[in-house]
């Protein structure tokens, strides 16, 4: 199975995080917010103008720009 970046998921789809890339500070912050490899993540919706994204992770909602979401790789479930 291939992994895909978070921003290419559709609203309502979910997947497990396989890895994070990108700027070290952003990557670190995302992991501190609970987006560590193996975590289940669900795309809830996109903002009315298409960006940012509302995701659900570890039982709470987090919003991210697509630009940053692109750095999060997932295994679609």
């Amino acid at each position: 199975m291939t992994t895909i970046p978070l921003d290419s998921l559709n609203a309502g789809e979910q997947g497990h995080i396989t890895g994070l890339a990108g700027a070290p500070d952003v990557r670190r912050r995302l992991m501190e917010m609970g987006l560590t490899p193996g975590t289940l993540l669900r795309v809830v919706r996109f903002a009315p103008l298409g960006d940012p994204i509302d995701i659900e992770v570890r039982g709470y909602h987090l919003s991210l720009r697509k630009h940053d979401a692109r750095q999060i790789m997932l295994l679609r479930q």
């Binding site: 912050r29 987090l62 919003s63 940053d68």
Partner: peptide, 11 residues
């Protein structure tokens, strides 16, 4: 400066 990442909780 680097565009700060937008990582915001929706409480």
């Amino acid at each position: 400066g680097p565009t700060p990442a937008f990582i915001m909780e929706l409480p």
